[in-house]
Design a protein around this nucleic acid. Structure first.
Lengths: 140, 140
DNA sequence: TATATATGATTAGTATACAAACGACTAGAT
DNA sequence: ATCTAGTCGTTTGTATACTAATCATATATA
């Protein structure tokens, strides 16, 4: 008789990753006083870091699919946090850049985001956090 | 003059978690030959583990919001992988259970899911994997 | 130059994910 | 017995996330 393989969902790395990500999102939502989601924040933080980028570039740098980044940029544009204009060098591209308001918002949000990171790894020592980041990075 | 805090997106635990989760989902999608998403698989695996459960219970055990688990169960029901009936003990509840087909499908999928887990942590030694799971579990 | 290939962006469709508001029902306290 | 607090489930709305199809534009190369 063929033995049934045991499969305990809660022991699987994928399920654990999902739950840890959920907790992070939850911390982000409760700690971020501005109307910013994790992805909207990520897009703006990357624009602050890198300056104007094409939409696809921004997506690649924030690990968002081209369809996903489009929605994120659209919602940021509605809120006047970013604006886009044609790239004079390449007619296919839309250059996305922070507005003045967008820059103010992201600057104001960064301390809160650092606090989110801090709270997320609250249960770990500094050494454990470093080790965790090292191990996770190996999985990319 | 107030110094601008540096914020490097790629160093933040939340962003790294998101990317690792994306990679896991991608492995799942390519390795799973059946028409199963990670959440559909998780719901069925938990039903196999625990037997019939109410919809809300199933959601809690799989870390899905009540609105999310509803959609997942609906889609599983359309595919005749689960069925629901009134709980005779509590008129509010719908008891969700695997169908015969559902049981066959989840049993067949388990080896593939174990392979997904294996590939996800491929870059780590056994000891590193154990350490990673331990650290992640502390964050829950 | 002509063409093949690659890249940028949009759209449609499916599937999570969560908040908020609602109605139905249970169980515990009084 | 009734009131109340909590639970179960649905629905609506917003926001990711990815696939596939499509179209426009660039670039490389034959």
């Amino acid at each position: 008789m063929k033995p049934t393989k045991t499969y305990i969902l809660d022991d699987q790395i994928g399920h654990i990753l999902r739950k840890v990500s959920q907790r992070h999102t939850s911390i982000f939502t409760s700690e971020m006083p501005l109307d910013l989601t994790p992805t909207r924040f990520a897009a703006m933080a990357k624009l602050l870091e890198q300056g104007p980028l094409s939409q696809n570039e921004l997506g690649r740098l924030t690990a968002m699919d081209i369809a996903t980044i489009k929605g994120v940029v659209d919602r940021l544009r509605v809120r006047k946090l970013v604006e886009s204009k044609k790239d004079p060098k390449d007619a296919r591209r839309q250059l996305i850049k922070l507005t003045g308001k967008g820059e103010d918002v992201i600057q104001a949000a960064i301390p809160d985001a650092l606090e989110v990171t801090k709270q997320t790894v609250d249960a770990l020592t500094k050494a454990e956090t470093k080790q965790l980041l090292k191990l996770l990075s190996k999985l990319l």
